[in-house]
């Protein structure tokens, strides 16, 4: 039996919004330690990894490890039926091919029950090594979203350059070019408004902006975002999910032939 009750159901709605444009089908892995998911986009250029720890749920029970194959479009449709203030409970029997979703309004006067068919998925899982990065940049998530949106009007690629002076995002296209530079700003009143840069060596990498724009669907989950980069390896874009977990997006760079 698997059962997970989340009082702040809006978190699950936001997580789903952050995943659905990148991933069409994914295996949600349920273990006693929590829920996790790893999936690549259709072109295998990016990968998303979600962790929601068991202790972040008000109630969590998982007697046997389960891999729930979920069509993300269906999951989105059903989660849209939940109100933002609803408590969401997920339930599945060990051998069932269905996931039950229950939405309770805050005062308990309305309870909605949905059932979603699960799929048999044979997903390739990649081992993500724990590694140190040459640069880690923490910045307000809305600023990152804005930069990606703005520069995507200029060109298809963004060059991210991180030095001790700051981080620079630049794009070039037929109509011209654009550059946005963010400098370290430790004086901001709110922690989410701070820009912090930790660097051991400078990094410059080129990425397809369309993927970064898809990652920014997670903006509403967290006030800040962390970008981790080393030369010639995938960029990591991480959003915290309150104090219960994270969404990490990995994006393969474009590298000169």
């Amino acid at each position: 039996m698997f059962e997970a009750r989340l009082v702040q159901g809006s978190l699950l709605k936001k997580v789903q919004e952050a995943l659905k444009d990148i991933v069409q089908e994914a295996s949600w892995d349920c273990t006693s330690s929590g829920l996790s998911l790893q999936a690549m986009d259709g072109s295998h250029v990016s990968l998303v990894q979600l962790t929601l720890r068991a202790d972040g749920f008000e109630k969590y029970r998982c007697d046997r490890n389960l891999a729930m194959g979920i069509n993300m479009g269906s999951m989105s449709k059903i989660l849209k039926c939940a109100g933002n203030d609803d408590v969401i409970t997920l339930k599945a029997e060990d051998t069932s091919d269905r996931l039950e979703l229950m939405f309770e309004s805050p005062k308990g006067e309305k309870i909605s029950n949905y059932e979603m068919k699960l799929m048999d998925l044979d997903c390739e899982q990649l081992g993500i090594p724990d590694q140190e990065y040459s640069c880690s940049i923490k910045m307000p998530s809305h600023e990152f979203a804005r930069i990606c949106r703005d520069l995507s009007q200029i060109g298809e690629c963004v060059v991210i350059t991180c030095t001790k002076d700051g981080v620079q995002f630049s794009a070039k296209g037929d109509m011209g070019s654009g550059t946005v530079k963010m400098s370290q700003n430790l004086g901001a009143e709110k922690e989410d408004d701070q820009v912090t840069i930790e660097m051991t060596e400078p990094v410059q990498l080129t990425f397809a902006i369309k993927y970064l724009n898809m990652f920014t669907k997670a903006t509403s989950l967290s006030g800040s975002v962390c970008l981790s980069m080393s030369n010639d390896v995938p960029l990591v874009v991480e959003y915290k999910v309150e104090d219960m977990g994270h969404i990490k997006y990995f994006l393969a760079p474009k590298i000169e032939d």
């Binding site: 990968l47 990649l126 090594p129 080129t206 393969a252 474009k254 590298i255």
Partner: peptide, 14 residues
């Protein structure tokens, strides 16, 4: 010309 790498070329299959 920059070539788009695949993410799977950086991580090993489990």
């Amino acid at each position: 010309m920059n070539k788009q790498k695949k993410i799977s070329s950086f991580f090993e299959t489990k």
